[in-house]
Simulated scan of single mutants.
Amino acid sequence: MSTATSTVFTGWPADAVAFLSELEADNTAEFWAAQRHRYDTAVRPPTSALAAALGAEFGPVRVFRPYRNRRFRPDVPPYRTDTGGVASTAGGTDRGFVLSGSGLAVTVGRYAFTGPALRAYRAAVAGDAGGELATALAAAAAGGLSLLPAPSAARTPLGYPADHPRVALLRLRALQVGHTWAVGPWLSTHEPLARVAGAWRAAAPLVAWLDAHVPEVG
């Protein structure tokens, strides 16, 4: 990823979605070489502009590079078929937005809990802080965000009662909320900025909870 440049966001032109859809259908070096100019004009500049606008409120937003890292997965397609960015808090919580051929998505939370972070998360959920998490998730839901599917333990984690009122949250190994809006003419207006910023604000209590109770480790 690279740091966004500061420009005014006025929306993505219609060709941005068309380009991403075509790249998904023909993810080859030949297509990229022939059509790269469309990425450079219709995709990258608006994405960077949106990232810069969000950064004024939420801190630096890193924009996705178009190339995939194939060092450990040489079988994956060479180019990303979406565009977007991520703002990470000092505590390790991510706020993201992604435009693809099917829509604009927002996500907020942690992609995965491992080791000490997973243990800290479970202890917080099981204790008094668990009620605060439920409130934070309710605030996110009121803002139109849903709890996203996440890896979970097959059974109740060792040391916690199977009838714990928040057992479903205890079993999670990641915690993210999000929403996706379908592609439409609104993408070519200022509206994406309002929608993404509004969603990120709705998830502010969740961000604060994760940063306070599940600090980034490592």
Rank of each mutant, 00 (worst) to 15 (best):
R62G: 12
H37M: 14
T10K: 04
R119G: 09
G178D: 09
A112C: 15
R173P: 00
V177S: 01
T3S: 14
T47I: 00
G91C: 10
A129R: 14
P45F: 06
F58Q: 05
H37E: 13
V214T: 08
F19A: 02
V207R: 01
E57A: 13
A194T: 08
A4P: 06
L170S: 05
F9A: 13
T156H: 02
A29Y: 01
L158W: 02
P66S: 14
T10N: 13
F9L: 12
Y121H: 08
P205F: 11
N27F: 13
A199S: 15
A136K: 01
F19S: 04
N27R: 13
D163H: 12
S152I: 08
V98Y: 07
Q176M: 06
A134E: 03
A42R: 05
R70S: 02
H164Q: 14
Y111K: 13
S48E: 05
A124H: 09
A33R: 15
S48H: 08
T89Q: 03
G218F: 09
R201L: 04
A212K: 07
S100P: 01
A117K: 04
L147N: 09
A14E: 11
A168R: 14
H213G: 11
T114F: 14
A154D: 03
P215C: 02
T156K: 03
D15V: 11
L169C: 06
A18F: 04
A105V: 06
L169I: 12
R65A: 13
P60V: 15
T10L: 10
A112D: 12
